[in-house]
Design a binder for these strands. Structure first.
Lengths: 213, 213
DNA sequence: AGACTGCGGTTACCGCAAGTAACATGCACG
DNA sequence: CGTGCATGTTACTTGCGGTAACCGCAGTCT
């Protein structure tokens, strides 16, 4: 029969696809984001055209790969975010979860944040579609959680989205810097960031008389 | 004389270098970060090897180009940051300055944030040196200002640096998202971000009874 | 004047990675 | 058996970063 055959082959194709993704994963983990298609194909024990048949182009492979990790990370984050705890504790846990993840697999993290430059084909002049999808998705996710759980008055949706993206960006930039310089322990970083979000900047006093006011 | 000649030539070289940078600027402004060396050379009316003589490699050109814009932007930001005004106002002005800049020249901004992937030569496995230098520099700068002007008790330096990078990241991510979706006016965005920094997240109440606590 | 040298410039090339075309092979179905 | 179809390969094209080797013209030295 046609249908059963189709499904069989689809299944096989899916398995193959997963294998390929895992091979790609290994290579990216080793070589970082500049892993070449040849290298990935070699790691998978096959040759380039197969990759292209499965994923279209490099962007397709990268997208598929990114989706896997992004989904996984987002699951962890959601868990930390939805845990039954004090808000501050939830925030700290979420930060820590994220930082632990990027600390554990820097190459993957690096790959997720800098997917690839545009190839010859599409060059989106439009700004905004270039940036790491992970950041966007985390931002939206966080925005949703904030809006669900925090009472922000009118315009809450807008505000939640701004905050979602803003907080994610804060986490990302601080994490990136921290990963590079390791100026303190993870726990300290988490504490400092949470303090920032808790308004300690506004609460602190001026140091000198200061030029203004 | 040798010395005068040298200086003359140095001057000429510097002028040439500036011209080349301006040409590169134009191309980047038109084509975004994937501008090719050939294109830049053509725009400057010369050919590739000259670019390489002046800048070493693509990274060098990009670094030089990035430095110009980064310096310019940092000057504006410093001005806003050091203005004689209330802290909240200073923060809002700084945010607004940054957002206005990326709004005015998205391509340049895009270029600054995604400089380029590593070529065949250097492949820094180390995470941290890849990311946009602009973010790092802004982070350090802000950290310095914070430490100078805000009284943070012991460990102030560490804390200031974390906050510097964190706040810059917040600004960046929110700006990136905003530039793509334009969900609100610039002023609203600035206000929302400042509110976030002013601890409104911590101050807001829970929406429902909530699963925890 | 005429050979020597330094410097701005060019052409022509290498290596490498993305992406593709065309060919080869294994296996179900009529 | 041949026909379709999916899987796999080799070998190619294109385009870019980067470089080597050559060209020509200032000015200088003798």
């Amino acid at each position: 029969m046609d249908t059963t055959q189709r499904t069989d082959q689809q299944r096989a194709a899916d398995r193959r696809r997963r294998e390929l993704l895992e091979a790609a994963d290994r290579v990216v983990l080793r070589d970082g984001p500049q892993a070449s298609m040849n290298a990935i194909a070699a790691e998978a024990g096959i040759t380039k055209p197969i990759l292209y048949r499965h994923f279209g182009d490099k962007g397709g492979l990268y997208a598929a790969l990114a989706k896997r990790h992004t989904d996984a990370l987002l699951d962890s984050l959601r868990a930390a975010l939805d845990a039954p705890a004090d808000r501050r504790e939830r925030v700290e846990n979420t930060l820590d979860t994220y930082l632990a993840a990027i600390e554990a697999r820097p190459q993957v993290y690096r790959f997720l944040m800098h997917p690839a430059e545009g190839s010859s084909g599409d060059q989106g002049f439009d700004v905004g579609k270039h940036s790491a999808p992970l950041l966007r998705r985390m931002g939206e996710e966080l925005a949703q959680v904030i809006e669900e759980r925090v009472d922000l008055g009118p315009d809450s949706q807008q505000l939640a989205r701004v905050w979602g993206h803003g907080i994610v960006g804060m986490m990302h930039a601080a994490g990136d810097w921290w990963l590079g310089e390791r100026p303190c322990s993870r726990a300290e970083l988490v504490r400092s960031l949470a303090d920032l979000l808790w308004g300690r900047l506004a609460a602190a006093g001026d140091r000198l008389g200061g030029p203004g006011f």
